Simulated scan of single mutants.
Amino acid sequence: MRRVVLLTAGVLLAVTACSSGQQAAQSRQGQAGFVSGNGNVSVFGAADRKAAPELTGKTLDGKTWTLSDHRGQVVVLNVWGSWCPPCRKEAPDLVAAAKELGPSVQFVGLNTRDLDQAQAKKFVQEFGVPYPNVYDPNGKALLRFRGQISPAAIPTTLVIDKTGKVAGRVVGEVTKQTLLGMVKDAG
């Protein structure tokens, strides 16, 4: 009986958390399918790392950004949307980590499902995001990461090692301290 009660409570908590995120997301540009992660951290040993797919796209400032141009450098890829409450919550930590790590680590955002590019630009300006952000309104670039990033789990952050392989992943909000540790492990 106790197991049933705990299971029921867990299911209700999960449904409540996801549905409130979904309702918030849906109220912003009809973003159905938003599921906020729980901050689950995965770190992969060198032998277990899989190659990140090629990512090329136009940034919010109109420049072309390509992942393979950054081989030899650790890359932090953060998937976000301006409509996503956890993305707003984690933005200051990402900005602080990017500033602390400096040019030795390439940060890049993958802005997904923002149908209005002005909203994405406003987010970047509001939080003082200092790194490039690839604009992916229809989620096509995000789908290249299938198996490494769930298209519905926003935000998600990948740490990609110097050889282009995924060294770590956070599904949900990432903190500065977690990110600094993951980058150190990937180096």
Results as ranks from 00 to 15, higher is better:
D114C: 03
R3V: 01
T64I: 10
N133M: 10
A51V: 13
R2Q: 12
Q119A: 08
G72I: 06
T64N: 08
V15D: 04
I154R: 05
A153L: 15
K58N: 09
A24D: 10
C87A: 14
V74A: 12
G57Y: 13
Q119F: 10
T178N: 12
K89T: 10
P155Y: 11
D161H: 01
D136N: 04
A118Q: 07
T112D: 12
A32Y: 04
A91C: 04
Q26S: 15
A17N: 06
A141S: 13
Y131S: 08
R71P: 00
G164K: 03
Q148F: 02
S36R: 12
A98D: 13
Q22Y: 15
T56K: 12
L13E: 00
L12T: 11
A47E: 08
Y135H: 06
T156R: 11
K184F: 07
A141W: 03
G181W: 06
A91T: 13
S27N: 11
R144G: 04
I154L: 14
A91V: 06
Q29D: 15
L7A: 11
L158P: 11
A97P: 07
L179E: 08
R49G: 01
A14P: 03
C87P: 03
G72L: 05
R28D: 14
Q125G: 04
P151R: 13
G33W: 15
K58M: 08
I149R: 04
D161S: 03
Q177N: 02
F34P: 00
S20T: 02
G109K: 10
V166A: 15
G81A: 08
Q106C: 13
S36I: 07
Q31G: 02
T112M: 06
A91R: 08
L179G: 10
K122N: 09
Q106F: 01
T156P: 09
K165F: 12
F107K: 10
P132S: 12
A47F: 07
F107E: 05
N78S: 11
G57N: 05
R146L: 05
Q117S: 03
G45W: 09
M182A: 01
G30S: 12
D61H: 13
A24V: 01
G172K: 04
S19R: 06
D114A: 11
A118M: 00
S27A: 14
L142A: 09
L6E: 02
N38H: 04
A97R: 00
A153H: 09
P85M: 09
G168L: 10
P53C: 07
K99N: 09
